[in-house]
């Protein structure tokens, strides 16, 4: 599964002159060109409305670019047949800014969803999921449904769901927006853990405290354009 990711060191994501607009509106992103190497870790910054979520939607194939090319795991997504999309998406974990949990399912079932969708069943799934939920501090709320969870708790369920599959690429949109700093740091540590095992990570955030603390390279969006800000390698 993961071997082809490193085949010839193809970038996990590559954008060529990508522009996107919503309907007949102005171009939200223009001439975006960048690539994410396997195993890299980036923050995605930019003020509110700069287009961070839009960029993530493009990577995750839930939004098609108006122009330009998006390559994912070495494949041109414009020519990708519809029935191949799910297989690519299974390799990507996404933490949505608005969580998108299923209200009628328990925390455990929400987190197990990517495994179920991929065909996994049985008690192993449940144990694995419970363990991860305990790790993010939700050991007491395994059977709780999202409407009865606090914002920060929902966010952690959403994060657990995004990482349960050990994705090749993790996209986290404001994953620390609703938790206090020490939980935020703990969550970034979780992402680093995944990153060490090979997952490419992109975290969109407003939280410059975290950006400064972890010192990973920054993709910064401003006026619809993207620029890479390299920072010294993170402290050990």
């Amino acid at each position: 599964m993961r071997t082809d990711l490193f085949d010839g060191e193809k970038p996990v994501v590559r954008f060529d002159q990508v522009g996107v607009r919503y309907g007949a509106g102005p171009e939200v992103l223009r001439d975006i060109a960048f690539s994410l190497e396997p195993g890299s870790f980036h923050f995605l910054t930019g003020e509110s409305g700069a287009g961070k979520s839009t960029l993530m939607r493009l990577i995750h194939l839930s939004l098609r670019p108006t122009r330009g090319l998006v390559h994912l795991f070495g494949r041109d997504t414009a020519t990708l047949p519809r029935d191949r999309v799910p297989d690519l998406r299974r390799r990507i974990g996404v933490v949505y800014q608005d969580f998108r949990l299923l209200d009628h399912l328990t925390a455990v079932d929400n987190v197990a969803l990517p495994l179920r969708v991929a065909g996994a069943r049985g008690p192993d799934v449940r144990n694995h999921v419970s363990e991860l939920l305990r790790w993010v501090g939700l050991g007491e709320r395994l059977a709780a449904k999202p409407p009865t969870l606090s914002g920060g708790e929902q966010q952690r369920v959403a994060i657990a769901r995004a990482v349960i599959n050990r994705p090749d690429l993790l996209l986290a949109d404001e994953p620390t927006g609703n938790v206090d700093d020490n939980i935020g740091v703990r969550l970034i540590h979780l992402f680093e853990e995944l990153n060490r095992m090979g997952t490419t990570v992109v975290i969109a955030t407003h939280n410059f405290g975290l950006v400064d603390r972890f010192r990973y390279p920054r993709l910064d969006l401003e006026d619809g354009a993207l620029k890479l800000i390299r920072t010294p390698s993170p402290p050990c």
Binding site: P86, R90, V94, P114, V117, A118, R161
Partner: peptide
């Protein structure tokens, strides 16, 4: 909405 999310998580139409 739920179907959209299942799609995003990588569900095939068959699922």
């Amino acid at each position: 909405r739920v179907i959209g999310l299942l799609h995003l998580i990588g569900a095939h139409d068959r699922y």
